[in-house]
Design a protein around this nucleic acid. Structure first.
Lengths: 195, 195
DNA sequence: CATTGCAGCTAATTATCGTTAGCCGAGGAG
DNA sequence: CTCCTCGGCTAACGATAATTAGCTGCAATG
């Protein structure tokens, strides 16, 4: 692994565990096997470390969403696949997702603005998916905004409790949570097993 | 308002807005109209401020849950009312709930242990409600644990985006989210309007 | 073999923070 | 009127943090 990548991954772990503010450059250095000042031979600053992590995370999430939605045009199936991608990302990259959600306030401008923009775009895409299902008459839900918030929050919650070695396999969680999402919006139609 | 109460409420606002670590005693002092050292005439320490807030919050949440569940024995209705209480608390005390969820890691022992214990109890109560519904045959969900996590996470998410003066009235959100919860667990029966 | 630059280190700088010490004015009690 | 306590203030302390300066050894290059 690249030195820089190693530092980033160690920093991610510490940011997730103790929070950005509570993590010191000395902590990161110790975990990576060097003194704090030596880190500056590889990274620009602690803030830069956070910014890199968070921006990359949001871009990955958006990319996963785009890829998932592009595979079909059926509204129900689209929401299902978008949710699957959402949940899977939060399970597979829970540290990134966790930090991405919790440390936005530790980001300084201009990174903060950029990340918030990406985040807003991601939210809008989900809201639009729900809206499309309502318009097509296959979802029964009072507020597309509330429903999409609820679905997004499922992923964030997941990132807080999920563990790779826990009792729930990744695929099981992905399936279950996607099911939750479709139930949430009152999805009807052949694409839904239960109900 | 009592001086101490004033300080606590100001601290809560700052902890919610910038995080515990990023909030200084000088910040709190300025918002309350005095210098940092003067705060110590009223509160023991910054950590104590956080501990008081978080422990009170968890106790209130638990009390609200107990009260809500005690009003009926029907499993569906119990989960609905517990969720309503959960969501309503997170809407009405969103700062407390927000800080309560995010700053656990900033708590030092022994406060941390106590709060985690209360939190675990709260989670267990929800899981048991879901389990009871499954046992009674009125819920159709694969994992009581996942379902209860999902419902709890709805509240936490809510605390992050809800605003008293936003476009969604409290009652509307409470109703909608409770509906989400019942749909999540696949609730059947006369107590459910839609489906 | 000489050189150069990378990547580490220690020491120092600058800043900030929680908290304590000790002073002081106002205002109520006697 | 005097005294004492309450609640504010400034100054100071002790820690700790991010970051910079400047030194050094090693390894690759020629």
């Amino acid at each position: 692994m690249d030195r820089v990548e190693h530092i980033r991954s160690v920093a991610l772990e510490l940011f997730a565990g103790k929070g950005y503010e509570a993590t010191t450059m000395a902590d990161i250095g110790e975990a990576v096997g060097m003194r704090a000042p030596s880190l500056y031979k590889h990274v620009a600053s602690k803030q830069d470390l956070l910014a890199q992590i968070m921006e990359a995370t949001m871009r990955e999430l958006l990319a996963a969403n785009r890829a998932a939605v592009a595979t079909t045009t059926d509204p129900v199936e689209r929401l299902r696949r978008a949710t699957e991608a959402h949940v899977r990302y939060h399970a597979r990259h829970r540290l990134e997702a966790f930090v991405g959600n919790r440390e936005i306030r530790s980001l300084t401008e201009p990174h903060r603005g950029r990340v918030l923009e990406l985040r807003a775009e991601y939210e809008t895409r989900f809201r639009d998916l729900v809206q499309a299902g309502i318009a097509a008459g296959v979802f029964a839900v009072a507020s597309a905004r509330l429903a999409s918030y609820a679905i997004l929050d499922l992923g964030m919650g997941l990132a807080a409790w999920y563990r790779e070695d826990g009792e729930h396999a990744e695929d099981a969680v992905v399936w279950q949570y996607s099911e939750f999402a479709l139930r949430l919006v009152g999805a009807k139609g052949p694409a839904l097993e239960l109900n």
